[in-house]
Amino acid sequence: MSLTDKAIERIRELVRSGVLPPGSKLPPEPELAAQLGLSRNLAREAVKALAVARVLEVRRGDGTYVTSLQPSLLLEGLSGAVELLQIDPGALLDLAEVRRLLEPAATALAATRISDAGLTEVERHLEAMREARDDVERFNVHDAAFHRAVVAATGNESLLTLLEGVSGRTLRARVLRGTVDAEAAAQTLADHEAIFAALANRDAALCQAAALLHVSNTEQWLRQHLESSGHRREDPAE
């Protein structure tokens, strides 16, 4: 571990232990460095790194503060990392697998928690998808918003942020599917109709099954498309 990494870890420990709770102001740089037994340069580098990670916020002319530490803030960098992962077709398939593992369970949980207002929001995006069947980009925007509204209904911000980072970045794959597959919109719409019907009935088991079928359909299409394009995934057992 480098000296900078050690400095970062020491400040993290102050946050984890509650010495520096969310929203609190850090001591001035000389005092912080002395408190941690570090040089001012190391303390400054550690603060910069933690600001990038959204653990700290540097307010020019005011000082440095611990952020709210909300999941949506701390996991903000996930979507950017996932965007880069899409360069590798194999990594894109990995992301599809992650979505298949998480989204059906999240949809089942949403069925037990969704409010009438939440259900109305999901239905609004479903109706927009119906109206945009011939507009691939608009259709896919509401496709993504439909899933976001479903997961948001769980009230679990960490789960929402994780799935936004993963499935939100597969939007490009869904747009591609809509471009090359004329039947994709009809199939996707049918899948979403089934998910909404299960949600409306607050049927968790049916929600999970409908969501699993939907994400599995998308994943299977992606696998076939990549293979036909010459991107065959290596089998670890080979």
Rank of each mutant, 00 (worst) to 15 (best):
E164A: 03
R130I: 13
V150F: 06
V141W: 09
P89E: 03
A51N: 14
R130S: 05
L56Q: 01
R60W: 08
Y65S: 07
A132Y: 00
D135H: 12
A117S: 13
A149C: 03
L92V: 13
T64N: 09
T154F: 01
H125R: 10
A106I: 01
G61C: 11
S158M: 12
D135Y: 03
L101G: 00
I114A: 01
P71H: 09
L50W: 02
Y65N: 08
A111R: 02
A81W: 13
E123K: 14
L160K: 02
S115A: 05
L159G: 06
L84V: 08
E83V: 11
E157Y: 03
I87D: 00
D134W: 08
H147A: 05
L119F: 06
G80K: 14
R130C: 08
L159E: 04
T67H: 01
R99W: 04
R100K: 13
A49N: 07
E131V: 12
P71F: 09
S79G: 09
V141F: 06
L50S: 05
L75E: 02
G77D: 10
G90F: 11
A128T: 10
A91G: 04
T120L: 15
D135Q: 13
M129Y: 05
L163F: 03
L85G: 06
A117C: 02
H125M: 08
A53R: 12
A145V: 05
G155E: 01
G155I: 01
A149N: 08
S115N: 03
L160V: 08
R99N: 05
A128D: 12
L162T: 10
R113C: 01
A105T: 06
L160T: 03
E131R: 09
A105W: 03
L56A: 11
V150D: 11
E164Q: 09
V58Q: 15
I87G: 00
E76L: 12
E76G: 11
Q70L: 15
D88I: 11
S79C: 06
G118A: 02
E123I: 04
A145I: 12
I114L: 07
A81E: 13
